[in-house]
Computed example of a mutant assay.
Amino acid sequence: MGKLHINTLGTSFTIQANGDDEYLQKLLSYYNRVAEDAQKITSLKTPLQTAILAGIMLCDEVYKEKQNKIAMEAGNLDPDVILQSNDIERHTLDMIEKISKVL
């Protein structure tokens, strides 16, 4: 059982959860990166809107991974195609971020 102090998007609290402290900190760091990406690629202004969009972006990742796993198990998808697709999505988000900074 680990403890995690969360200080993000204008709120601060501590939780206790399954997993060690290092794992929980990695999760929080990943969430913070997704929330920062959400802020950079949109014009959202409130922390609540950012948190909701970050949650949807994370759900999208999980859903795609599950769908890819199902497709791979059924023999319908090549693992190399999945990796390429993930790279393309990551590059697209990077380009959107760069365009937003220029504008």
Rank of each mutant, 00 (worst) to 15 (best):
M1V: 06
M1E: 07
G2T: 01
G2S: 01
H5E: 11
H5Y: 12
N7F: 05
L9R: 13
L9M: 13
T11C: 06
S12W: 05
T14G: 05
T14D: 06
Q16T: 10
Q16K: 15
Q16H: 10
A17M: 02
N18F: 10
N18Q: 14
G19I: 02
D20N: 12
Y23A: 04
L24W: 01
K26F: 00
L27F: 01
Y31C: 01
N32G: 03
N32T: 07
R33N: 11
E36D: 12
D37Q: 10
D37G: 06
D37W: 09
D37I: 08
Q39E: 09
Q39K: 13
S43C: 09
L44V: 07
K45Q: 10
K45C: 03
T46G: 04
T46N: 04
T46D: 01
T46H: 05
Q49Y: 05
T50M: 08
T50V: 14
L53E: 04
A54D: 03
A54E: 02
M57L: 12
L58K: 10
L58D: 10
C59H: 13
C59N: 15
E61D: 14
E65T: 13
Q67H: 15
I70L: 13
A71T: 02
A71L: 14
M72D: 02
M72A: 05
M72V: 06
A74T: 10
G75Y: 08
N76L: 12
L77N: 05
V81G: 03
L83H: 15
L83N: 13
S85A: 15
S85I: 03
N86F: 02
N86R: 09
D87S: 15
I88E: 05
I88L: 15
E89S: 12
E89H: 10
R90N: 12
H91E: 06
H91Y: 13
T92V: 11
L93S: 03
M95F: 08
I96P: 02
E97F: 06
I99W: 07
I99Y: 11
S100D: 10
K101L: 13
